[in-house]
Design a protein around this nucleic acid. Sequence first.
DNA 1: CGCCGCGAAATCGTATATCATCCGAGATAC
DNA 2: GTATCTCGGATGATATACGATTTCGCGGCG
Lengths: 236, 236
Amino acid sequence: MSVTTGAPAGGTVSKSQRAYAYLRERIEDGRFVPGYRLVLAQLAGELDMSVVPVREAIRRLEAEGLVTFERNVGAQVALLKETEYQHTMETLALVEGFATALSAPHLSAAQLDAARAVNERMHGCLADFDPHRFTELNLEFHAVLFEPCPNPHVLDLVRRGWRRMTVLRDSSFSFVPGRARESVAEHDRILDLVAALQAGTATATDVELAARRHRTATLDAVLAFQEQHRSHTQEK
Amino acid sequence: MSVTTGAPAGGTVSKSQRAYAYLRERIEDGRFVPGYRLVLAQLAGELDMSVVPVREAIRRLEAEGLVTFERNVGAQVALLKETEYQHTMETLALVEGFATALSAPHLSAAQLDAARAVNERMHGCLADFDPHRFTELNLEFHAVLFEPCPNPHVLDLVRRGWRRMTVLRDSSFSFVPGRARESVAEHDRILDLVAALQAGTATATDVELAARRHRTATLDAVLAFQEQHRSHTQEK
DNA sequence: CGCCGCGAAATCGTATATCATCCGAGATAC
DNA sequence: GTATCTCGGATGATATACGATTTCGCGGCG
């Protein structure tokens, strides 16, 4: 499912690509919040181009689920149902667990060491906790484990899931304080399981389910925290 | 990730939608084979519209992976690597297994009966074997089991996987004669597991892995058949 | 005071025109 | 004879212009 970039030979990028990058960047970093109306003419003006490339960019974002579109009405940044976070996280747990299991046999000793080093740094971050920094390291850690996945479809789904998570929530860890510490410990267990799989003392399913549970545990922690918070403050 | 249709109020459909439906239909039923060049002007002529809506349709198909695109060169129906079938099937095994497990608790007795009835008809088909008919029933059977999946992302991935399979191979069963009979037997086992889960004597993971293995077994059978066939005929 | 219909403004949908790019055929020089 | 260069056709990329649809405010009417 990888998408061709349409990049030309000589360094330049097409206008529709520029529009796509412009919009996606703003949606992902939160400058364009969900529900924000994307008016073609206005965007075309900002980007100094006509509306045609902007339309194409929006069509592409639509296919990726980042914007919704209604005929003769216009586009807006996709609205998130409250279950969106849960479903995205659940899907990511599924595909990332599988990708990690598929990758495990292909991981070199050097890569495993690198992952352990990253996890060490995460451990060091626990004292003066910076959620954003921690989330960055978290991606770096998991990327080492899922990137060697030999199935490009699955790998693509994992990358999309992570990207989607950045839109939904910059860092789950900032919501649930205790989760970061547990997470670091689970990382070590996952690494142990990968090593065990390579040694023949664990199965791919063991790795998959461990990686999956690692993520669903974060999800459960966030949901529990939200529930508790909701009932205490009675908001909404 | 569901895509808005952009359908207007009054029954009409936009031209870009018509172009999209036109192209996708032809790609999926094989009239446009992989590698077929999609020339904008030509398609616009066939559809009696200008090139602009056709471009948008192609962009959408590109995002879905059905066509590839190169700037200033054009679009063509996506080429399939020989591993494409394997990867798609593997991904489908993953998401369909999970979807089936998530759906299991929501299946009514009537739906389970319907699924059994479909499987009975599949059993009846074994005598005078019609691969196409069998594949249709196969989808019908599995659709009952995965459609109640409460996670729309996963459900969407399953539907895309099935759709992709129709492009890749009309029927796996026509390739591996013995597989159809095994398949029917496995269907019964899956239904039993779903019932067991509802009764509390099986876990969601049991259902998931059974549904997954059911699909990977078909994949393995096809791969084994291809391997055997390749070594015997020495083709390519 | 509220509801309904009308009209204007905003916005999208499509066609046409023009420019940029790529690829191959043919000529030309060596 | 071959290699390279150049030119022209084919095709995509973008801009502009016009038409279609929706939305929303405003005024009249019940």
